[in-house]
Design a protein around this nucleic acid. Sequence first.
DNA 1: GTATCTACCGGGAACGATTGCGGTATCGTT
DNA 2: AACGATACCGCAATCGTTCCCGGTAGATAC
Lengths: 394, 394
Amino acid sequence: MGMIRCTKCGQVHAIAKSGMVRGKQRYYCKDCHIYFTLPDPGNTGVAGTKRPRPGHIATILDIAKALNISKSTVSRALQGHTDIKKETREAVVKMAGKLDYQPNLLAKSLVKSKSNTIGIIVPEFVNYFFPAVIMGAQEIASEAGYNVIICQSQESVKTEIANTKVLLASRVEGVIISMTRETSDFDHFKAFGRHGVPIVFFNRICEKIPASRVMVNDYEGAYNAVEHLIANGYRRIAHISGPPNLRLSQNRINGYLDALKAHKLPSHRSWIIHHDLTAANASDSAKKLLSLRSRPDAIFCVNDPAAIQTLLYAKSIGIKVPDQLGIVGFSDDPISSIIEPQLTTVKQPVSEMGQIAMRILLDQIKLGPGPHKPVHTKLLTNLIVRQSSVRDHP
Amino acid sequence: MGMIRCTKCGQVHAIAKSGMVRGKQRYYCKDCHIYFTLPDPGNTGVAGTKRPRPGHIATILDIAKALNISKSTVSRALQGHTDIKKETREAVVKMAGKLDYQPNLLAKSLVKSKSNTIGIIVPEFVNYFFPAVIMGAQEIASEAGYNVIICQSQESVKTEIANTKVLLASRVEGVIISMTRETSDFDHFKAFGRHGVPIVFFNRICEKIPASRVMVNDYEGAYNAVEHLIANGYRRIAHISGPPNLRLSQNRINGYLDALKAHKLPSHRSWIIHHDLTAANASDSAKKLLSLRSRPDAIFCVNDPAAIQTLLYAKSIGIKVPDQLGIVGFSDDPISSIIEPQLTTVKQPVSEMGQIAMRILLDQIKLGPGPHKPVHTKLLTNLIVRQSSVRDHP
DNA sequence: GTATCTACCGGGAACGATTGCGGTATCGTT
DNA sequence: AACGATACCGCAATCGTTCCCGGTAGATAC
């Protein structure tokens, strides 16, 4: 029970009501029988001035009022409608410039139910690969007038799920995804399908969902890499693989195994080590392989970061590469041509991957809602032979 | 003149009118004296069903109707308002889950005039530096419930201007910028200020604008690097610098020059070469320096990519590093600890840079509109001494 | 001179949320 | 019984666009 000035009468005592409306205390005036809240103290309301807020961005209504025409006309003039007289249009455009008008995409998206936005979810973007893919994708998207929201799942399913929620709430028209290494439940991806948002997977695809995919010929790439090692006289070839639930890991293992089989070379289970794609773990895997009693004389790695860690470890313990150990990576990371010895690697078209994924996605968006036949694209790799796998005297 | 069914009467002939309204032909019915357009053929309108579109995302209205309550109540229930009965709230939440409700951020942003979005503009993100900064920034932003739109200017002022337009149109609440190397006109940045959108510059700052800045102690970093070279017996120290209009280039040059001066060492104009931060250009600069008659015996580079190119070039023409040539870079790019010899470099706190920039920005946003005192933050670097600059016998 | 067209423009309903204002039913006091 | 207070909820305006209707003035046709 405090004395507070009522909005209708003079000061009368009023008491707290209606449990705090949006953070503001609500009062009731006994005499006037009305409810009221106190105005914000910040707003020293100068009556009469309509919208004097400093950071106000001009709207079409501002332009319309300045020109004494309707906002419909302004809207049509601004989007180049034929129905508008030339002078009117010019006046509108001029006034828009004068008022520093910037269209409110939020409002536009809302009314058109079209956000002009694409979502991209990647596990991380510190290692060369994903930024390069994103660059390719973004290039195509902005050519088509689309914006891109980039999300990092940070290899965590939990944030991956959070990412899908954000993208859904932002009403993206399509999504490009490379999964987390630990994603095994796919309900959050299906949400996109339920809401008619097309998906394109790349690199780390999900086979449980009938969506388009962009990958490289992992099997052939691995096969060729291993065959190249064999041709260079290596016989005890091990493999540092990726997380087993990723299709790309499986494909590259199969290529590796089949190449060995085709050349009647042995394959041991202990020669295949899965690692989680972190640098520290790759180095551990290399350590494990190189301290085996039956030490391999070559290692084919699922990607370049792993190959680089392997190479560094081998050097650190005095194993000569390529003489005592052959190494082949996968991706053609810029580091691989700088490290010594230079790394032989299976080059994959990284930027193109993003471009193609985006092109497929935009096509699906153009086709409109409804389930479409998924497009499965397999890009070609090629082996870049450098020093880490070539011996003069096998 | 064709026979087309009128919307009001039976079929009467009608003729093209009103110059194609929004891509659709408009007709006029002579008998009814009305104008009309043909409905979209795609919509085989099943009357009665309100919104049967397949990809429809449930709205609060859908929830309200399903529960026979008003949408206001749904809205309040969903945001945990106190004014809602417990059973009602639970019913709403349950129905929201059942209908797979996802709030429409566009609508929310529109009505609240708050997009919950931050814009980031960087020149590129293939080289280690910018992705790492962005990661740091994004981390802080998502902790605070903000989304991030990332734009690449691709070192082009033109796309940088386009980026600002997009961010403005997306009603971002703040922007973090690292300029293009060629940006010399700043009107497009001022637009943010005019609209009350706070800016934080990092790395490549703009001094013509009273905005907050995050940088490292470029001068001291450079000074220490050069002093380190001097301590290792190098006397003819050159510098590959960045674009001259960037403050960081100037600061690092000054640190370089002052260190030379302090040790009474000569500095030649021909020993300072500006390069445009591309790899090819860095390599050219190294070539130019190393073919000078008075060849320098050490080079301090404005960043690691340049230092790496220099190192590679020196090796390619048989110059021994560090014996015949000392090299120091700037940034501590991951490559610098892998290349041989390992690169001495001035380490800057990259991820922290993004974090701090974002924190400053969020603070300014919290303070609300109106000009605030810009915050100028200078982070500390420290010299990582590796092999490329250390000689046993100076 | 009238009927018919054309060129242009305005009114107003969406889009999907938030929120100020106010109403009803219920309960507790005196 | 009457009144004050509380708990809960609905109405309707609002954000900035787009776009469907439709209307009017002038040109053209007959």
